[in-house]
Amino acid sequence: MSLDSFAGQLAGADPQLQQFLQIETQKQRFQGLVHGLTDQCWDICMEKPSSRLDSKTEHCISNCVDRFIDTSNFVVNRLEKTQQFASSSELDD
């Protein structure tokens, strides 16, 4: 059972508990993304593991994270634009 629907069932019943669950749900969402990004960027950036994370790999990983966010922002923006275009051309008809 997901935390989300659990929190939903408790909505209004116990404000303190509800707040705790909301914060934890947010934390889980953040961590889920970190897990996924670490997985992807590790495959892209890591060669043979050495005794420390070298600066080249560090660079690659932080670029990887930033470019992923850029990509997802770009996708959202572009979708919004095409959506707007579609709805404005509907008005023209």
Binding site: P49, R52, S62, V65, I69
Partner: peptide
């Protein structure tokens, strides 16, 4: 080494993502 580096990477991703 791989374990340690994976956790380093996890922390770096978490740091980069949250500052973003």
């Amino acid at each position: 080494m791989c374990m340690d580096r994976y956790m380093d990477s996890w922390n770096l991703v978490s740091k980069t993502y949250s500052s973003r």
